[in-house]
């Protein structure tokens, strides 16, 4: 192993959370809105119009050639209606949270931009899965939680030198463990718990904090948000299966086998969803994260 791994010093961890760049006021308000089960585009417009740079970005994306708009969208209301909440929250996070989503996760052997691409793919998948649910899954919350679900990796990545070697060593042992278990054993915490700390520091709504905290153990989530968290969990797995992981940990995670109780999906449906998502992802990713 290149360097010995040690348990994280809680004081250093808290300091690292505090050092993360705060979200802009508009992005924070958008996330508060998206954390609610119901929201309307006009509510998003009221928030976006208070931040000129974000307004300009929304208009720029709405009028980009790749989205195929037939006439120029001159006002924010027109642009927002055309794009929908999904693009707007994506643009806000890609702008205000650029340092987080574009971070190079050295501890995970992940390149700059991998986290943004993984997050976007997961978010699109969560939205698609929400539409297949047999119980209440809040589509907007699932989408936004999936965008944010791995933010904890940005913080603990710096505490993980030599981690990829550790994973390799453990992968050769007879007892295979998933990455979350390994993180807990070598760091005393995991990226879900740390992501939840950051979400709390950013004062995100409970629904999003839960999506982040429980995305690898969705059945432990509070009942109200459980099905939505299952969507985030499945979406994360699908992103890694599609090749959109965040480095050495992909795809070393356990699937919660009870997903069918919330979102029943056949192999044919999953394949079809993955194909559709790939098309949507290729259309959107250059506008947000490249």
């Amino acid at each position: 192993m290149a360097q010995a791994l040690t348990m994280i010093d809680p004081g250093k961890l808290v300091q690292k959370v505090r050092d993360i760049e705060p979200l802009s006021d508009a992005t924070h308000k958008l996330l508060l809105l998206m954390g609610q089960p119901d929201h309307q585009v006009k509510d998003l417009v009221r928030i976006v119009e208070c931040e000129p740079a974000l307004t300009a970005n929304v208009l720029k994306v709405a009028n980009s050639a790749s989205l195929g708009v037939k006439r120029q969208l001159a006002t924010l209301a027109e642009a927002a209606s055309y794009l929908g909440y999904m693009h707007i929250i994506g643009i806000a996070l890609a702008t205000s949270g650029r340092r987080v989503f574009n971070a190079e996760l050295k501890g995970y052997g992940s390149s700059r931009g991998d986290l943004g691409r993984h997050s976007l793919w997961s978010a699109l998948a969560a939205k698609g899965l929400a539409q297949l649910a047999c119980t209440v899954v809040y589509e907007g919350i699932a989408f936004t939680s999936a965008l944010l679900h791995d933010i904890g990796k940005v913080i603990i990545s710096d505490f993980l030198p030599g981690y990829a070697d550790e994973l390799e060593t453990r992968s050769k042992s007879t007892e295979q463990k998933d990455n979350l278990t390994v993180e807990r054993e070598v760091l005393g915490t995991d990226h879900c718990a740390v992501g939840s700390l950051l979400a709390e520091h950013w004062q995100l709504p409970e629904s999003l904090q839960i999506g982040i905290a429980y995305h690898h153990c969705p059945r432990e989530a509070p009942a109200k948000w459980r099905a939505t968290t299952v969507a985030v969990h499945m979406a994360d797995m699908m992103a890694m299966m599609g090749g959109y992981g965040t480095g050495s940990d992909a795809i070393l995670y356990s699937l919660d086998g009870h997903y069918n109780e919330f979102i029943p999906i056949t192999a044919g449906k999953l394949d079809s969803l993955m194909l559709g998502l790939q098309k949507e992802y290729e259309r959107i990713v250059p506008l947000l994260f490249d």
Binding site: M241, L255, A267, L270
Partner: peptide, 16 residues
């Protein structure tokens, strides 16, 4: 064709 751990049902994509 890598697979997630405890794969089941539709998530058997790597093997399929």
């Amino acid at each position: 064709g890598a697979n997630v751990m405890d794969r089941s049902g539709a998530f058997d994509l790597g093997a399929r």
